Amino acid sequence: MVDFYDQKKIILVTFGIILLISALFVPAAVFYPAKVVTITPEAEIVGTSFWSLVLGGAGIVLIAASLFIAALIERPLKSWLLAGAVAVIGLVSIAFSLGDYYYMTRDSFTYNPPLSFNSSTYTWEEFERVEERLHKEGGTSSIESVAYYFHDGDMIEFSSGRIFEMHSSLARRVEAAGGEFTRIQPQ
């Protein structure tokens, strides 16, 4: 029985190490493409926040930690309860990672923020204005952040990500629907 138990520990630790290593690339290599594939085919560009990648990696690390806990703590009930709790937190973190996205279709913009499972969809007529803040360095200007304001009082601001790829198209659609576009130059 001792040999089987030691083999079980080795297997758990081995899978834990594999998960630790994969935590570095799985959020970008697996989770992001999974979002792109599962989101509506009408989506022109799908984006996600930096926090999505961090939460996905942290979730995988927590699941790896649960395997280490199960293998290294000698008291079976205590180890499996603690490992189960850590694994559940890891799975919730991965769920938040998978639920963090934004995309644009011909008719609307959909945003599901980090740490939320509720997305909001805005038609172009619901946008009040778009603000583009520029940053000047060495004589060249670049976009520092973009902010989208809605008639209902909501505001979404992005400082990085694929939103910059869809921003000009999004701003044109907002303007065509009667919204304002403002470019804020650095002083």
Rank of each mutant, 00 (worst) to 15 (best):
K8G: 05
I10E: 12
I11F: 12
L12P: 04
V13S: 13
V13H: 09
T14I: 08
F15N: 07
I17C: 15
I18D: 10
I18P: 05
I18H: 06
L19S: 12
I21N: 04
I21S: 08
S22E: 13
A23P: 05
L24C: 10
V26W: 07
P27Y: 03
A29R: 08
A29L: 14
A29V: 04
A29D: 14
V30A: 12
F31C: 01
F31V: 11
F31H: 08
P33W: 03
P33R: 02
V36K: 13
V36A: 14
V36Y: 00
V36E: 14
V37C: 01
V37E: 09
T38S: 13
T38Y: 06
I39V: 14
I39F: 05
P41K: 14
P41Q: 13
E42T: 13
E42Y: 07
E42N: 11
E42A: 15
A43F: 03
A43Y: 07
V46A: 02
G47Q: 00
T48G: 06
T48E: 08
T48P: 00
F50I: 12
S52G: 15
S52E: 07
V54S: 03
L55A: 12
G56E: 05
G56A: 11
G57I: 05
A58M: 14
A58F: 14
G59M: 11
I60S: 05
V61G: 05
V61N: 03
L62C: 12
I63R: 02
A65L: 15
L67K: 01
L67Y: 09
I69G: 02
A70G: 10
A71D: 03
A71L: 03
L72M: 12
I73N: 05
E74F: 00
E74G: 15
R75I: 00
L77H: 06
L77E: 06
K78S: 06
K78P: 00
G84W: 02
G84T: 04
A85N: 02
V86P: 01
A87Q: 08
A87T: 07
V88T: 12
V88H: 00
I89L: 15
I89A: 15
G90H: 09
V92D: 09
A95F: 11
F96P: 04
L98G: 11
L98R: 08
G99C: 11
G99K: 01
G99F: 03
D100C: 08
D100R: 01
D100P: 04
Y101H: 10
Y102L: 01
Y103Q: 04
M104P: 00
M104I: 13
M104W: 00
T105M: 10
F109Q: 08
F109Y: 14
T110G: 12
T110K: 09
T110E: 15
Y111S: 01
Y111M: 04
Y111H: 14
Y111F: 15
N112I: 00
P113A: 06
P114F: 05
P114N: 02
L115H: 05
S116K: 06
F117A: 09
S119C: 01
S119M: 09
S119T: 07
S119V: 03
S120M: 11
S120K: 13
T121V: 10
Y122K: 14
W124H: 09
W124Y: 15
F127P: 07
F127D: 11
R129S: 15
R129P: 03
V130L: 08
V130I: 14
V130E: 01
E131K: 09
E131M: 09
E131A: 06
R133W: 09
R133Q: 12
